[in-house]
Amino acid sequence: MNIVINGEQRALDDGLNLQQLISILELENKRLAIEVNQEIVPRSEYADYILKQDDKVEIVQAIGGG
């Protein structure tokens, strides 16, 4: 399936959940927040959240700002 992560197209295996996506992206143990199709997915639900074709995923973190 193809999904969009932070604005970039990615081809990934069908049935992937958010926890697996985080592993693939080497973002384990990072302090993140995730939206899928503009809905926040709570951290506790990553393992149960199955991604599907054309999902738009936003993965955000804290950076310096004023």
Binding site: I59, V60, Q61, I63, G64, G65
Partner: peptide, 30 residues
């Protein structure tokens, strides 16, 4: 201490230090 929320870099510098590592939320009000 103010912070901004932005997209995480995907696939670049996975070991880049995170701002929250130097600003522990138990020490500052973010």
């Amino acid at each position: 201490i103010t912070i901004a929320v932005r997209r995480t870099n995907i696939g670049q510098n996975p070991d880049e230090p995170n701002l929250l590592d130097i600003l522990p939320p138990d020490q500052y009000t973010l």
